[in-house]
Amino acid sequence: MGTEEDKQLIIETLKAKKTKTKFYLRDFNKMFPERRPREVSKLVNGMVTEGILEYWSSGSTTMIGLKGAGVQHEAEDREE
């Protein structure tokens, strides 16, 4: 599992993007160029379990963002 530093890096990088709140796994890989994609996805998925990040699905592709960030469907907002 990731260190606090790793998590901070992810949170800050995501927050710095002004116009976008959902990201591909590849965007996370770029934050850790030295690491294997498998490790990065474990880190990201761990942060989802901790409630820091959340998944967004197009059905065919999954994207990841900070929990609660971005434009959600009104009904998703309403019900959660």
Binding site: K22, V48, W56, S57, G59, Q72, H73
Partner: peptide, 16 residues
Amino acid sequence: HGGVAGVFGYGGGVIG
């Protein structure tokens, strides 16, 4: 389409 991905902790299994 809705982006709800799954149940908590899962990235798949649900289509919104």
